[in-house]
């Protein structure tokens, strides 16, 4: 009888996309043997566009290199233009299941094209969840949902919160599971626009920003890479504990105002991507969130001040829940 020495558990770090030589990454893209696990969804990507692969590596650097799984929710491709035009004005095309849903973009903007393409696929097809149009971040497993109209500074605040230690679940989609009431990560790079790019660049040394794409359809855009702590927790859902409706105003002093439940419901539900489609399911899920979470409008001009206020609100909502 032989005895085996117990082995030390191995705590190996995953190989991250930033660790791969670019040539190897290009090879994996060209054979579509690379899948992106966003948390809520898995996307398989094929591309032979060098500029896309290079930019992708910068903003998806913390994601683990995973072999293409047997199942992916979306099969996508980013490829070059067709015909004579591809020589005169190089383009990128985004394909989902071989279908091109949008007009081509300039080739240099292949990465933002891909990002918007994946958002579109998700918003159109991922109807097993209630898709709130909101950022979502967590401290531990308690999440704050932040909903705001475009231009209100939601992405900037989301980015800054991640850089100050919050776990980012998503910048764009609050992926609410109607069965469990929890939020799933849909972790993608944060698309920062115009002035927000420099704000975040100056905000934290650990901000990893991809290239600046000038003059896109949404202005000048750069993507903030999700940090490894958020990436590594992308299979961990969180329970909503706070609803926030942030708005940035130059020079504003911090102003926090409690919102009545019915107003919070209207703001969350009617800005959802698929509330109308899911009917009673989304009504019940959103009502449950609003019943469980205090809701506030938050006007701010200084990021760190807003972030500290949000930390306090989460802590208070936690103690309220314990007391209840």
């Amino acid at each position: 009888m032989t005895s085996q020495q117990p082995q030390e558990p191995q705590h190996t770090q995953p190989t991250r996309i930033r660790d791969l030589p670019l040539t190897l990454l290009e090879k994996r893209f060209s054979t579509a043997s690379l899948a992106l696990d966003y948390g809520a969804a898995i996307v398989r990507v094929r591309s032979r566009l060098g500029v896309f692969v290079r930019d992708f590596q910068q903003v998806y650097g913390a994601f683990a290199v995973a072999d293409a799984p047997p199942f992916a929710d979306f099969h996508t491709e980013v490829c070059g233009g067709q015909g004579l035009r591809s020589f005169l004005r190089p383009q990128s095309r985004f394909l989902i299941d071989g279908i091109q849903p949008f007009d081509p973009f300039p080739k240099a903007q292949a990465l933002p094209h891909f990002e918007w393409g994946v958002n579109w696929c998700f918003a159109q097809r991922f109807n097993q969840h209630v898709l709130l149009h909101a950022g979502a971040l967590a401290l531990g497993d308690r999440a704050v949902i932040m909903a705001a109209p475009p231009g209100a500074g939601k992405s900037t605040l989301t980015a800054a919160m991640m850089l100050r230690g919050f776990r980012m679940l998503s910048d764009e989609f609050g992926v609410l599971c109607p069965r469990t009431g929890k939020l799933w990560p849909m972790l993608k790079p944060v698309a920062l626009k115009n002035r927000a790019v420099d704000v975040i660049r100056d905000f934290a040394d650990n901000a990893i920003l991809g290239p600046l794409y000038k003059g896109t359809r949404k202005g000048d855009v750069a993507h903030l890479a999700p940090l490894a702590a958020s990436v590594d927790a992308r299979q961990r859902p969180a329970r909503p504990c706070l609803l926030l409706f942030p708005s940035f105003r130059d020079g504003a002093t911090l102003n926090i105002r409690r919102l009545p439940g019915e107003e919070a419901f209207a703001r969350v539900a009617f800005n959802s991507f698929n509330y109308a489609l899911l009917g009673q399911i989304s009504f019940a899920a959103v009502a449950e969130v609003v019943a469980a979470c205090p809701a506030f409008a938050l006007e701010y001009s200084r990021l760190d001040e807003a972030i500290e206020a949000i930390r306090t609100m989460i802590a208070e909502s936690t103690s309220d829940a314990v007391a209840a």
Partner: peptide, 28 residues
């Protein structure tokens, strides 16, 4: 009609036509 009180106000979902109604505290 599915009625859900949220604080002093409420929301109502009409399963017949899938309309949602927002009720102020007085309306609730």
């Amino acid at each position: 009609l599915l009625y859900r009180q949220l604080g002093d106000g409420a929301v109502v979902f009409d399963t017949a036509n899938w309309h949602t109604h927002i009720l102020t505290p007085a309306a609730a």
